[in-house]
Amino acid sequence: MGIYFEPPDEEAVMTGADVHAVADDLNMAATLCDFLQQKTADHLLSLDRN
């Protein structure tokens, strides 16, 4: 599981505040990915126990 980035159609010029906002969004996405990966691993482990 992962997040894929594609190049934008247009150049993106960002302020410092814009970069901070993107960083916050990426942090939340990373947290969600970690959560989902752990839930998947836990689920697969529970299947092996049955």
Rank of each mutant, 00 (worst) to 15 (best):
G16D: 07
N50M: 09
A41F: 01
L47P: 02
D48Y: 05
H20G: 05
M28Y: 08
K39A: 13
C33R: 07
E10H: 09
V13T: 14
E6I: 07
D18T: 02
E11C: 13
M1N: 05
L36Q: 13
V13Y: 05
A12R: 15
L26D: 01
A41T: 03
G16H: 04
L44H: 02
A17I: 04
E10P: 06
V22T: 07
E10A: 12
Y4W: 05
V19I: 12
Q37K: 02
I3V: 15
P8K: 05
M1G: 09
A29K: 14
D42G: 02
Y4F: 07
K39D: 04
L44S: 00
T31I: 08
M14Y: 05
S46L: 00
A30N: 14
D24M: 03
M1Y: 07
L44G: 00
L32K: 11
F5E: 04
N50E: 12
Q38C: 02
L26G: 00
F5G: 00
L32N: 10
T31D: 11
D34G: 12
T40N: 03
D42I: 07
E11K: 15
G16K: 01
H43A: 14
D48N: 12
N50A: 13
L44Y: 01
I3R: 09
D34F: 08
Q38E: 02
D25W: 07
D25C: 09
A41P: 00
Y4A: 10
M14D: 00
D34C: 10
G2S: 15
A23V: 03
P8I: 01
F5T: 04
H43Q: 09
S46P: 00
V13F: 13
M28F: 11
E11H: 15
V19M: 14
V19Y: 03
Q37G: 02
N27V: 15
D34N: 13
L45M: 07
A41R: 02
N27I: 14
L47M: 13
F35H: 14
N27E: 12
N50V: 10
R49D: 04
G16P: 03
F5Q: 06
Q37P: 00
G16L: 04
T15F: 00
A17Y: 04
Q38S: 00
N27M: 15
A12T: 08
F5C: 05
N50D: 09
D42Y: 09
T15D: 03
D24P: 01
E11S: 10
G16V: 08
E10G: 06
T15S: 12
G16N: 06
C33T: 11
E6F: 05
F5K: 04
D9K: 13
L44K: 01
D24R: 06
